[in-house]
Amino acid sequence: MQRGKVKWFNNEKGYGFIEVEGGSDVFVHFTAIQGEGFKTLEEGQEVSFEIVQGNRGPQAANVVKL
């Protein structure tokens, strides 16, 4: 599992990016966020996640808020 901080997340569009220290930013879609109810992330929030290869490159999967 990787760890990072949410760079930004757009609730209306349902996606954003996670900053990884020493690495490239990783795309995150709301469907990758674990948990119940409305799935969103806050700027600066710490998360753990896996990186998978999506249609447009690397993206976050199994995102857990820390």
Rank of each mutant, 00 (worst) to 15 (best):
1 M>T: 10
1 M>A: 08
2 Q>K: 15
2 Q>Y: 13
2 Q>I: 15
3 R>M: 14
3 R>E: 11
3 R>S: 09
4 G>H: 02
4 G>I: 00
4 G>D: 00
5 K>Y: 07
5 K>N: 10
5 K>Q: 08
5 K>A: 09
5 K>D: 04
6 V>Y: 00
6 V>G: 02
6 V>L: 04
6 V>M: 05
6 V>D: 00
7 K>D: 03
7 K>I: 14
7 K>C: 12
7 K>E: 03
9 F>V: 03
10 N>S: 14
10 N>F: 04
11 N>S: 09
11 N>T: 10
12 E>W: 13
12 E>F: 13
13 K>R: 12
13 K>L: 14
13 K>G: 04
13 K>T: 08
14 G>K: 07
14 G>T: 02
15 Y>G: 02
15 Y>C: 03
15 Y>S: 03
15 Y>A: 03
16 G>A: 01
17 F>K: 04
17 F>V: 04
17 F>L: 04
17 F>D: 01
18 I>V: 12
18 I>N: 01
18 I>A: 03
18 I>Q: 00
20 V>P: 14
20 V>A: 12
21 E>K: 11
21 E>C: 10
21 E>H: 15
21 E>D: 10
22 G>W: 11
22 G>Q: 09
22 G>T: 15
23 G>L: 12
24 S>H: 13
24 S>V: 11
24 S>R: 14
25 D>A: 05
25 D>Y: 03
25 D>M: 04
26 V>P: 01
26 V>D: 01
27 F>D: 02
27 F>W: 05
28 V>S: 02
28 V>D: 00
28 V>G: 01
28 V>N: 00
28 V>W: 01
28 V>Q: 00
29 H>Q: 04
31 T>A: 04
31 T>E: 06
32 A>P: 01
33 I>E: 02
33 I>K: 02
33 I>C: 05
33 I>F: 05
33 I>V: 10
34 Q>M: 13
34 Q>V: 15
34 Q>W: 08
34 Q>N: 15
35 G>V: 09
35 G>N: 07
35 G>D: 12
36 E>A: 11
36 E>M: 06
37 G>I: 04
37 G>F: 04
38 F>Y: 12
39 K>W: 03
39 K>L: 07
40 T>N: 06
40 T>Y: 09
40 T>H: 07
41 L>G: 02
41 L>D: 01
41 L>V: 09
42 E>M: 12
42 E>S: 09
42 E>F: 08
43 E>Q: 15
43 E>R: 15
43 E>C: 15
43 E>G: 15
44 G>N: 06
44 G>C: 13
44 G>V: 02
44 G>H: 14
44 G>P: 02
45 Q>H: 09
45 Q>S: 10
45 Q>P: 01
45 Q>R: 09
46 E>T: 08
46 E>R: 11
46 E>Q: 12
46 E>D: 04
47 V>L: 02
48 S>L: 09
48 S>K: 12
48 S>H: 10
48 S>I: 10
49 F>Q: 00
49 F>S: 01
49 F>G: 01
50 E>S: 10
50 E>L: 11
51 I>D: 02
51 I>H: 11
51 I>P: 10
51 I>T: 09
52 V>K: 12
52 V>N: 11
52 V>F: 10
53 Q>K: 09
54 G>S: 10
54 G>M: 03
54 G>Y: 04
55 N>E: 09
55 N>P: 10
56 R>M: 07
57 G>D: 03
57 G>N: 03
57 G>W: 03
58 P>Y: 07
59 Q>K: 15
59 Q>M: 12
59 Q>I: 06
60 A>F: 01
60 A>C: 05
60 A>G: 04
61 A>P: 01
61 A>E: 08
61 A>Y: 14
61 A>R: 14
62 N>K: 02
63 V>D: 01
63 V>E: 01
64 V>W: 09
64 V>H: 07
64 V>M: 07
64 V>C: 15
65 K>C: 09
66 L>V: 15
